[in-house]
């Protein structure tokens, strides 16, 4: 069972990666060909062509324009990332001398090799393991608990609801910098220092951002659905699990992507609470690479920076697809 699931995911990931590489090219080529043949006909037999190909011409041209614009603008968007990727293959002198070139003189994996070694005998495999554990647990915990809370805020009328909602929102408006010290003192009294507790346990209590987001999504679901389910004898819990959760799958997917990324990218919390370098997460380790007072191995910084993006990116792709395939409101309404 597990093996089957695993191999299915492996295949999915493989297909996704292949798709990423080839599909834009294919799309562009296909539309281009269509457009070209249509244009040819248009030039030699304008009247016939107009009559015959009106529909196709229009859609092909539209497709071509769509892909051209989206791709061109997309390239601008990811140029900095491509730059980083290219730099991760460059030698130490090349990074700063041929800064604007995107093609390294030689494709060297040295940066990856030296970066992976990490610092003082602790390699990046340790950091990745730590990060995956912390971010994995945090994601599951925060998405699920946030959904429960969101349902309460969105669908149940109770005394003090508006007050608590306002309080929850305002907790997001206070800069973390001033909460840090009181929090540190509190966590140190709980004996949480040098453990993953400060990184993970708070996530079990929901995160205001996700709660607010899911509230908005639940409020977008017609209340008749709940009422119908209630008449059918569904309890509150039943409504939540059978009606609401499936319907807010897009929001759950989005939350999962964000929850994982935020946890993965956070360096301040692990920096403050973890005292043992063997417990460091990727974000902390990456930050330790660079210090302005000494020579930095930038190639290694970029190489590990790129590797650090991989899990986040994979998670995005998985959930993004899942989100698209999610059941739409209409499906249940009928």
């Amino acid at each position: 069972m597990l093996n089957r699931t695993l191999s299915r995911y492996r295949k999915k990931i493989k297909n996704t990666i292949l798709n990423i590489i080839f599909s834009p090219i294919r799309a562009f080529r296909r539309n281009y060909k269509q457009a070209k043949s249509a244009i040819k006909l248009f030039v030699f037999h304008p009247v016939d062509a107009l009559r015959m190909y009106q529909g196709q011409l229009k859609s092909a041209a539209r497709g071509l324009i769509f892909h051209a614009i989206v791709l061109a603008f997309g390239l601008v968007m990811i140029y900095p990332l491509i730059w980083m990727l290219a730099s991760s293959f460059k030698g130490p002198s090349e990074i700063w001398t041929r800064t604007t070139s995107l093609i390294p003189n030689e494709l060297s994996l040295d940066n990856y090799r030296s970066g992976w070694k990490g610092f003082a005998g602790i390699s990046f495999s340790t950091y990745f393991k730590n990060s995956l554990w912390v971010s994995g647990v945090s994601t599951v915990a925060s998405v699920f608990s946030s959904a429960i809370v969101a349902y309460g805020f969105a669908r149940i009328r109770f005394t003090g609801k508006k007050f608590w909602f306002a309080v929850m929102l305002s907790t997001m408006m206070l800069p973390a910098q001033v909460q840090l010290i009181p929090q540190y003192i509190m966590f140190s009294k709980l004996h949480w220092i040098n453990s993953y507790n400060p990184l993970i346990i708070p996530r079990f209590f929901g995160m205001p951002f996700f709660i607010f987001m899911m509230v908005q999504f639940i409020r977008g679901i017609p209340i008749e659905l709940d009422e119908a389910a209630e008449i059918d004898g569904c309890s509150r819990g039943g409504i939540f699990f059978r009606i609401i959760l499936p319907l807010i799958k897009p929001a759950l997917g989005t939350s999962a992507i964000f929850a994982f990324y935020w946890s993965w990218d956070d360096f301040l919390t692990p920096l403050i609470y973890l005292n043992d370098p063997r417990k460091y997460t990727v974000a902390v380790a990456l930050r330790n690479f660079a210090d302005p007072s000494s020579v930095t191995n930038w190639g290694a910084v970029f190489a590990m920076g790129i590797l650090a993006l991989v899990p986040v990116f994979l998670l995005f792709i998985l959930f993004q697809r899942y989100m698209v395939e999610g059941i739409s409101t209409t499906g249940l309404k009928g």
Binding site: S23, M84, D265, L309, F313, Q320
Partner: peptide
């Protein structure tokens, strides 16, 4: 459309690089 997944990935990618030193 058939390749929106890929395009979404491209447009979303800058948002996952965050505020690291490399960025």
């Amino acid at each position: 459309r058939r390749f929106v997944g890929v395009y979404r990935a491209i447009y979303y990618a800058p948002s996952i690089v965050g505020g690291s030193v490399a960025v």
